[in-house]
Write a protein that binds this DNA or RNA. Structure first.
Lengths: 293, 293
DNA sequence: TAAAATGTCTGACTAAAGTCAGGGAGTGCA
DNA sequence: TGCACTCCCTGACTTTAGTCAGACATTTTA
């Protein structure tokens, strides 16, 4: 473990040093860095001020003041969008603000090039794939799993994506009727719905409910496609099993469709064993159980 | 190319965000971040002030002022070391400074752990090896190659390390006698000595000199062991060949010892072909030539 | 040995980043 | 309608980070 931590620290040092220096040199040329970041965040489409604040993690006064500065330089405007909540201001780049953003993008590309070109073609390829791996895993490591209300908009959104995917993957489609009673069964203390968050975005979910005395059922385990293969599913499953243990369940069951290979792989790898059908789900091809000791 | 640059930018964003937030949260808790970094750099063994300045890339006044601040808090002292250059001050941590450094190290470890543990064992391993790769390549990409005086201390240092390595690798050892005339032959305009710099540290060298009319010779190509396999050797070799072309040479030659496998591999991969001995170097087993068209 | 260069220090300054309190406008609910 | 709340704004601050000029001691070079 010691050397692993040292490795992370070495990475941390090298990378912050190199990127910090470059960011300042390329992006903060004639303007405070925070202002450049704000320009980036507003982007071509504009954004509500509250969102800018959240994304940059900055104080309301600070952002407001920077927006005034951008307005004085005629790079951005804030307006109120009719139809929206009248308190919310919407920031948008002016024509010259967009030109400025393009210039920043060019500089940012130069920065990227300055990292790749000295390495030659093969080295650049190696760096790129290692970067992609680090980036994905680092994102995965900031994922947080927390219980949620099954009726919350985020839960609804996860379910929509989940059912949408089932509909496209199942041979013969999928008709996602779901009674309110099932959702109620995910509510504590008998069940639980867990959502995996990447910052403010819900990127996965999974639910546990009581099936029979001593036996729970896991349902709706889903991970956003862009976060697959990074262990998020495994984490959700682990947490659901932990929740089941806490509820004194001695086993959990689940069913799944033949087309969901990653899920089936995950279940087998996690110690689930195939059992006889315990329900008449017409979309299920496999039924699994794992005993929790 | 476009998507490659985008990949780098995505990495840049994710990593600076994640590391920036964590750095501040963990290391800048009750003290300016720069001060924490200074504590790190002084370290257990202490360091000369000039070196601290160089490593952190900070203004002399700024560092001096931070040192005074650390002194006021009884975390560090500066002293003059007898025997050394009397102008140089040496910074050293006090007992409580060391305790503070340990605390920082603990926090830094926590930070590292917070990245690894959510990924599970396999994910952590993947992250670690990708991090190591990114770190090494990023360091390699900040290497700069520049001509140097063959008599400069850095050149001397490179040669010492080079000869030292030859002595340990050659069967039967190596007696590194080198006449001043040879060094003189590396001086422009007829020859050139290139040094590869990683920030202020010389981590590789290579020399070109005139051998016969129209033919040059490459000598002393060496890369620090910790920077091997990252394309630095290839870059030095390319630059030496470019220098040869600029001098209107139509070919370059070099000799090498059988034990230097990496070098031999590099030469072959770069288009060098074995030729008959063109000198009577008793340590050489192979003689190579490449024609520059 | 004088002159130039180097290493460190201080004082005086600036820019950037961030915090805090309070106020006005708008929204949603009782 | 009144009240609590949200969103954004401004003004008044502080801290952090940095720059610059010059002073002084020491070392190196001519």
């Amino acid at each position: 473990m010691q050397t692993e931590l040292q490795q992370v620290r070495a990475f941390n040092r090298t990378v912050t040093q190199r990127l910090g220096v470059l960011n300042e040199r390329y992006l903060g040329r004639d303007r405070p860095l925070a202002e450049s970041r704000l320009l980036f965040e507003i982007g071509l489409k504009g954004a509500p001020v509250r969102e800018l604040r959240a994304r940059l993690g900055l104080d309301s006064g600070f952002v407001s003041r920077m927006l005034r500065a951008l307005e004085r330089k005629r790079l951005a405007t804030t307006l109120r969008r009719p139809g929206d909540d009248g308190r919310v201001r919407f920031a948008r780049l002016t024509r010259s603000g967009i030109a400025e953003l393009q210039r920043l993008n060019t500089l940012s590309d130069e920065l990227a090039r300055s990292m790749l070109t000295p390495l030659g073609k093969k080295g650049a390829q190696r760096l790129l794939s290692a970067m992609a791996e680090v980036e994905r895993l680092l994102r995965a490591s900031s994922v947080e799993v927390a219980p949620a209300d099954p009726l919350s908009p985020e839960a609804q959104q996860c379910r929509d994506q989940y059912f949408g995917e089932l509909a496209s993957r199942f041979r013969g489609g999928f008709d996602g009727g779901l009674e309110a009673a099932v959702l109620q069964s995910f509510v504590p203390p008998r069940g639980v719905l867990l959502i995996a968050w990447l910052f403010a975005e819900a990127i996965g979910c999974g639910a546990l409910r009581a099936l029979q005395p001593g036996i729970g059922e896991i349902r709706h385990l889903w991970i956003s496609p862009k976060m697959r293969g990074l262990g998020v599913g495994r984490r959700l499953l682990d947490e659901l099993e932990r929740a089941a243990r806490k509820r004194q369940l001695r086993a959990v069951r689940l069913d799944t469709n033949e087309s969901l290979d990653e899920a089936i792989g995950l279940y087998r790898a996690s110690g689930y064993r195939e059992i006889a059908p315990y329900n008449d789900n017409r979309y299920a091809h496999y039924w699994f159980e794992k005993s929790l000791s």
